[in-house]
């Protein structure tokens, strides 16, 4: 069952007086429970595709559908609501709100969703336990290592049971050992909780963990293989 479906997505950015094509007709279908890596060199269009799937950016043409929600029919408020309830995000850096503790960062999304305080506290604790941060609830981001920060970001992304989690180069700022630990954890979440992950990377190790590898070059999908 398709959880993400894009058809002929095109996106061009304007840099000064020059039009730079980022995506040139991308068709992609991702099924529920997949663990998909978008691979490709810098500037290939990975992040643009993730942003468009996540409703952070809109395509110039083409259609996007996430969990049966067609973006063409939605305004900015609807997209914000979709992001809040259906999509989890993990970014490369600056993932967490620096003045909130680990548990507060995880609770924050549930607060926006209107989850009652006790429930969100219990769920945040449980998910932090799952990602191995049971002793770091009250640490602020500055008191956590890069890997721990990314774990908190993953915990926040999956805590409210989203349809998909989009991760933009989640291991780019981590050393290989920490990056591998994060990937193992994401893979575990994918298997145990059936969370669909789509992440971008140009790290070969990360690609090895992917269940499906989609390679993008110059704004086009040039290879799509399921392992």
């Amino acid at each position: 069952m398709a959880i993400v479906e894009t058809k002929n997505i095109k996106k061009t950015y304007r840099q000064g007086k020059v039009n730079v094509p980022a995506l040139c007709g991308v068709d992609l279908i991702v099924d529920k429970g997949e663990f998909v890596a978008l691979a490709g060199p810098s500037g290939s269009g990975k992040t643009t595709l993730l942003n468009i799937i996540g409703g952070l950016d809109l395509p110039d043409s083409g259609s996007v559908m996430v969990d049966n929600n067609k973006f063409a029919d939605m305004n900015q408020a609807d997209l914000a609501s979709l992001r809040l309830h259906k999509i989890g995000f993990v970014f490369q850096a600056f993932n967490l709100i620096p003045v909130l503790s680990a548990i507060e960062n995880v609770e924050y999304v549930m607060l926006l969703q209107g989850v009652p305080q006790t429930e969100r506290h219990d769920r945040a604790k449980a998910i932090l336990d799952d990602v191995g941060l049971e002793d770091k609830y009250d640490r602020r981001p500055a008191e956590l290592s890069g890997g721990q920060q990314q774990r908190v970001a993953v915990a926040r992304a999956i805590v409210s049971g989203p349809a998909i989690v989009l991760a933009d180069e989640p291991t780019a700022n981590l050393d290989s050992k920490t990056g591998e630990g994060l990937l193992l954890m994401m893979k575990k979440m994918n298997k145990e909780k059936k969370v669909t992950f789509i992440f971008s990377t140009h790290d070969n190790m990360v690609m090895e963990y992917a269940g499906r590898l989609v390679t993008i070059r110059d704004g086009r999908i040039v290879n799509d293989e399921t392992k």
Partner: peptide, 10 residues
């Protein structure tokens, strides 16, 4: 940070 908050659905 505001961008992150908006991305999260704020």
């Amino acid at each position: 940070e505001f961008g992150l908050m908006k991305a999260l659905g704020m």
